[in-house]
Write a protein that binds this DNA or RNA. Structure first.
Lengths: 104, 104
DNA sequence: CTGTATCCATGACGATACTG
DNA sequence: CAGTATCGTCATGGATACAG
């Protein structure tokens, strides 16, 4: 999802997670009220469409930052929550958040 | 240089700095050997072109993370170094770097 | 309710040549 | 040495309709 970068440093790899337009907000929305269902998430992340929410969640799950529980019912019922790895990223994002608010 | 984001959180604003393809590497190159001249920087950030280096530096200067000293000589001689603000970002990037290396 | 299938716009990124 | 001018490409993001 990211263009190729010159060096394979850790920040570069982290950017694959926080670099998209929605993924940070999705992570925060999940961390606030996990577990959370698809449509709750859609309401929490204002302005996001089905397409983008689905895409972003797939990536987050692929990175193992978010996990999905599917109840296999009809109508469908799924729940998203953070993995340990995902939870470990949140404090770092908060630091960045504070820096951004203070310095930009 | 970034697409509009849904919320104006600090991370979002920070992303304007670390979101580009080159800016992180430029920041690191400067922090390693400041002050540094244009062509030194170009060699340090492998693969970057004049165009992208100039563009990125302009943004970093606009955010007040990098400052430029122009000696106004012929041939030209300029030097780039980090501002305090820029220097304050580096440790955070290191944290992200470690997280990325460990978790991705 | 939780997605998928299409098709399209925009802008970040870049190759190349040129300049004071 | 330190840039600028042009012009092209392609990925990201999105609107809309539809499906199980």
């Amino acid at each position: 999802m990211e263009k190729k970068r010159p060096f394979d440093c850790g920040v570069t790899r982290s950017m694959e997670v926080i670099g998209g337009k929605w993924k940070i907000n999705i992570l925060w929305a999940i961390s606030r009220g996990e577990p959370i269902r698809f449509n709750q998430l859609k309401r929490a992340v204002q302005g996001i469409t089905n397409v983008m929410l689905t895409r972003s969640l797939k990536e987050l799950i692929a990175y193992n930052l978010v996990k999905k529980k599917d109840f296999n019912t009809i109508p469908p019922h799924v729940e998203y929550s953070l993995t340990e790895k995902g939870a470990s990223l949140v404090p770092i994002l908060r630091t960045l958040d504070q820096w951004g608010k203070k310095n930009l």
